[in-house]
Write a protein that binds this DNA or RNA. Sequence first.
DNA 1: GCAGATTCGCTGTAGTCGGCAACAAATCGA
DNA 2: TCGATTTGTTGCCGACTACAGCGAATCTGC
Lengths: 386, 386
Amino acid sequence: MNERATTVEGVRRTNLAEVLRLVHHSGPRSRAVITGETGLNRSTVSDLVGRLVQAGLVEEHEPDPTRRVGRPSPVVAPSPGVVAIGVNPEIDAVEIGAVALGGSVRERVRVPVEQPDVATVVEIVAGVVAGWRGGALAGCRIEGIGVAVPGLVRASDGVVRFAPHLQWRDADIAGPLVTALGIDVVVGNDASLGARAERLFGAAREHEDVVYLNGGASGIGGGLILHGQLIGGVGGYAGEWGQTAASVADAADRRADGGVLEDEVNRARLVQAAGLVAPDDTELRAAVAESPSEALTAETARQRRILTATLGNAVNVLNPAMIVLGGFLAILRDLDPQAFDGEVRRRALAASAEGLEISAAALGADRLLIGAADAAFERLLADPLS
Amino acid sequence: MNERATTVEGVRRTNLAEVLRLVHHSGPRSRAVITGETGLNRSTVSDLVGRLVQAGLVEEHEPDPTRRVGRPSPVVAPSPGVVAIGVNPEIDAVEIGAVALGGSVRERVRVPVEQPDVATVVEIVAGVVAGWRGGALAGCRIEGIGVAVPGLVRASDGVVRFAPHLQWRDADIAGPLVTALGIDVVVGNDASLGARAERLFGAAREHEDVVYLNGGASGIGGGLILHGQLIGGVGGYAGEWGQTAASVADAADRRADGGVLEDEVNRARLVQAAGLVAPDDTELRAAVAESPSEALTAETARQRRILTATLGNAVNVLNPAMIVLGGFLAILRDLDPQAFDGEVRRRALAASAEGLEISAAALGADRLLIGAADAAFERLLADPLS
DNA sequence: GCAGATTCGCTGTAGTCGGCAACAAATCGA
DNA sequence: TCGATTTGTTGCCGACTACAGCGAATCTGC
């Protein structure tokens, strides 16, 4: 995250970045607290905050009425006037959000559209952003646009290599968006950006080593955070758990011959066993929890066996501090969290399971928008007074 | 690796560390080259190198006779007088090496001993190091001791949680070694340190995302390097591929019911199929390569199927730039590297396989000693003029 | 209600560090 | 032998944080 400062001027950039990142990711806090957490001198923090205020990136509010002796320290909060746009094109709609520094969603729109192509997405985003600029976000500073794509995204240039759901292949969405809006654009994999959001503002807050798995209608996506950094791999395609060969201990548990994890641990199979038609996650959760049929019970048990085996492997290889499950994977776990977690632990080395926590995703539908917007903030966070 | 410099004094520490790390990991190079590679100013490099020379950490040699115009630039090389001790306790011996800054092994000793306990290892190391200090390493500066243990090592304090081979459990080897020798001690997992060595001085040189898997008599160990950093996980136990549930597609391929990867992909099974008795890797390699029996051919094919599936999963999840195989895993691959690599690629997403290279380990028996010693150098590299 | 204690913001000074420019040194080519 | 080129060296400058001293704001005890 932080690059090293090899020059004296770079020190200020590093320190400005640290202060801004702190109030953005960890919330408003007093100058005194910032001084303690950064280890910087009071006068230095004063100077840094002053510059950030002058740049309009943070605001200083009157001190918290803490019942403590001493002169009260003003609270430094990220400015709500600095926003980034998060975009999530999906098979049936394009979701767009305006996220302020600090992680709060200020605006949010869902535009239904069947399997949009790049041009359609750009058009929709341009229209929505133009409307916001003249209205709800008038006077705001839009720092960038982050796009969360359900597919493989090349890290080096943001080209969407393959998004099966949208039927995009080698699609450049960043270029047209920049042209249309004149704002910096960042493109990323949806699960990776979801992991980012959960790590910064959700269940995995403050954890440095996180495995995030999300189960959606189209499959299983994942994100990986190690040493506090989002892991992309050499091309940026890391995290594709859904495409791994499932380790199915009992041959009777296998449904798809030669299939991959998302063929076995599969939302559609769960829906079918529940006898539902196109339920959302809330309905599916209810069906699984309340008086399930024998077939549904067997199917959930089967999927849980395979999923826990996969997670056990992940624990052995990565030794994460936390596993975060989203979508129908959380539903599978919530059926009996204790048994589920115990099974994962049983399949892992005792030492590796010691530091492990398993949790359902905390952020709701905003997750992808927040993650995408945060990625768009990255440039600002790295060098606040560019 | 590099921490951020939040203070002006820290800038020098960072830059000193960068220069020393460069000549240590990437080899001797002229001041002019260092200037180009670091982006620092000539005068700054001059100052930094001068300090490192004064501290005895690097030496300046007369310039390379390059046939180029201009004033020749002296070559900066790591001082061979600065060494770290690498230690590798194994089931039948303790191996000890003295590794100089730059990565060259200066001394090396193998002390045969049956299943040594901690006290025995400490005694042996103390004896060997005392001998070196009075002889071969007289006048050398011993910066630290690195111990590569075949087992789980807690990152926070270096305690060996469990080393099945040595039958160590919750063993503190760092404390007694420090007491006996008065030198800083670092303890790490053998495979992780092997990965470190391969990344810095071996096959994975200069790659940022590396999966390393080593197959030994006792099982399969692994190390993981992502974003150029060794991945430890929250407790430091990451990389235990051998204990993962193998994904065996064909039930007929399974040998150990409910077994883990190292039960299926197993050196002993290979040895048995070859009809050998306690061969070393060279003998095993020859047996596998030259006119193998039908049983041996079937066994290698079976193990290759399972291993390639595991590696395919690793590629999908981690998208590494390189997979490095050591020990009998390299033997399995070398039987037909092209087919092996092709199979791994086939099991991975096309995009993830694009940037992938697969290779046998390049460093021989010195690997663990070099990795352990490099870990012991870490403190010096982070802050050269402590 | 007042005085002392405590915490913290503010200001001016000091020390450290890398960049820069000018000069000197060392090599090559003509 | 001279000019061109590259690089080490030196002194100066600008940038940045730490520090100390002072004043401001709040709490506690009497």
